[in-house]
Structure formats: structure tokens, C-alpha cells
Design a protein around this nucleic acid. Structure first.
Length: 271
DNA sequence: AGGGTGACCTGTCGGC
DNA sequence: TGCCGACAGGTCACCC
């Protein structure tokens, strides 16, 4: 469910409301991907200072330490005073003076991990290898091209790896490559400067637009207010195998790369 | 060190 | 209707 835009939309939907809230209680149910790494009760009385995002992680800065939250494949957060009764797949809950934050995650690929600081070994393991933020000033077209030159794998898999640029998941990888006119199987190190510049621009454009539209709602994404996004209305190729390309009408093709499905238009996207 | 694969987990959908 | 396999928005640990 969550790629960078969904995570950012989630952040925006509750960051202001939770800022400066005092933690009253913390509940961790069925194990997520990793243990919380602290006694839940040790968080009681702490203040949630603010909510940041790094790649697909949400970082809740506390008065002492931080919580790293990842939504995995199927996670979503809710925040408010009047949440419905917890269900089978609600695995983490934090009651604060300003509302309750709850993680719903059927597949449990998500995580909530406490770290004393960003220098904590676990925090470094999770955040240390992340590439640059695509919507930030550090995402530079020249440096992007130089980094691609060092990779011989297919460009789509390089995007998914997230060690050059973060936040582009399986949906947006297909979408950005479509917008840039680049075949997903193109070797990263074979991309010319103008092509990588087009991809750089497409990544910024697609992700920024998806955030502006409230994220994707392919299945059941909703932000922490329960509101769903509208990006799926705009998908050019993702999940459209066999359907006519929205630009040229030729059938959208699909293939598998690294056990993930990829969609592209053979006519609009050149090798 | 880059690149490929399996693993983690539950739900849903299509085919027989 | 039931069963079974394929697949789903992520990414880590492990091989070579």
C-alpha cells in the first residue's frame, strides 16, 4: 500500500495533531517485523515532539529517543479520539493526550521500533543505507546520472532498491518510467544524461503529484483520518496490462522483474 | 559490493 | 461451494 506519497500523506494527516502530545499508554500486540526494542511502559509520560519522514519510514521524535514506524505492504495508521474498537489486525496502539495512534497491518510486514537516537544500531540498520529524498534539494540530476552509471541492472530494479533515491515503490516505478519514456528493462548504466534527467524530473513530478492528490487508493489506502486518495485515477500503466495505453492506444505490456510485476507501453517507452 | 533469490505474513481472487 | 495456486503497495538476510 504505502510508497513515499502514501507515507507522506499519512504523516501530514496527523503530524500537527499529535505534536506535543503526552504518551499515556502503549500496546504492542502480535509481533510485527521487529520487536519494539523497549518496554512499552518506558514510553509512558514521554512527549511526541513531531513527526518526520525518511524514505518510507515515519519518525516520531520523542522527548527521549524516537519511534520508527514502517507501514510495510499493508499497513495504515489511524489517529483520533474516537477510533472504532480494535480489530484482529490492529497490532500497535499508543494512547496520547491528543488522541490514539493505531497501526492496522494485516500482513505484518510493518514495524514500530524504538531507538534511543538515530545513531542507535537498529536505527542505523534501517535508515543508514537509504538514498536521497526525491522531493528534497539533495536529489540532483547530475548526481543521479552518475549513480546510475555504476549500476548494470535494469533501471526499474535500481529504483526499487532505494539506495540511490528513496520512496519509489512498485507502482510509482512503473509510472515514472512511463512518464520518462524509458523501458523498465533498460540497464541503468546505459542511460544517457538526457534520459536520466528526464527520469529525475518524472520521479519528482509523479511523487509530488501523488502527494498532492492524497496518495494512491489501489486497494484500501487511507490516511490517518480515514480519507482515501485519488491517484489510482491517474495511473497510466500500473495494473493496466492488456488495456490500451492512455497515450498511444497500444496494449500495455506486463512482465516480472525480481518477482515484482512491471507495466509499460512498448511504443511510448524505448529500450 | 552488486546482484539474485527466498523469506516474512495474511487476504483475495480466479480457475477448476 | 470448496480447494489451490498465484499474487499483492516492502525490504532484509543470505548466497554467489
Amino acid at each position: 500500500m504505502p510508497e513515499l506519497p502514501e507515507v507522506e500523506v499519512t504523516r501530514l494527516s496527523f503530524a500537527d495533531r499529535i505534536a506535543n502530545a503526552q504518551i499515556k499508554s502503549v500496546f504492542m500486540g502480535k509481533a510485527l517485523r521487529w520487536p519494539l526494542a523497549c518496554e512499552p511502559s518506558s514510553l509512558h509520560g514521554q512527549t511526541v515532539l513531531r513527526v518526520r519522514r525518511r524514505g518510507k519510514y515515519l519518525l516520531l521524535d520523542l522527548s527521549a529517543g524516537l519511534l520508527l514506524i514502517h507501514l510495510g505492504m499493508s499497513g495504515s495508521l489511524s489517529f483520533g479520539f474516537d477510533l472504532p474498537l480494535p480489530g484482529k489486525h490492529d497490532h500497535f496502539e499508543m494512547v496520547t493526550s491528543q488522541g490514539t495512534l493505531r497501526l492496522h497491518d494485516p500482513r505484518r510486514f510493518g514495524a514500530v521500533v524504538y531507538a534511543a537516537s538515530e545513531l542507535d544500531p537498529m536505527a542505523r540498520k534501517l535508515l543508514g543505507r537509504l538514498g536521497v529524498e526525491p522531493l528534497g534539494d539533495d536529489f540532483d540530476a547530475q548526481a543521479f546520472h552518475a549513480a546510475l552509471k555504476l549500476r548494470k541492472t535494469a533501471i526499474k530494479q535500481v529504483l526499487l532498491a532505494g539506495d540511490i533515491v528513496v520512496g519509489v515503490g512498485n507502482i510509482y516505478a512503473s509510472e515514472t518510467l512511463f512518464l520518462a519514456g524509458i523501458r523498465p528493462t533498460t540497464r541503468a548504466n546505459s542511460m544517457s544524461k538526457p534520459r536520466s534527467a528526464r527520469l529525475h524530473e518524472a520521479i519528482r513530478q509523479v511523487l509530488a503529484q501523488a502527494v498532492a492528490k492524497g496518495g494512491s487508493t489501489l486497494k484500501d489506502f487511507s490516511n490517518a483520518n480515514g480519507e482515501s486518495g485519488h491517484f489510482q485515477l491517474e495511473a497510466m500503466v500500473y495494473d493496466r496490462g492488456g488495456l490500451p495505453c492512455r497515450v498511444c492506444g497500444s496494449p500495455v505490456k506486463s512482465l516480472r522483474q525480481g518477482q515484482r510485476s512491471t507495466f509499460y507501453c512498448a511504443s511510448c517507452q524505448k529500450p
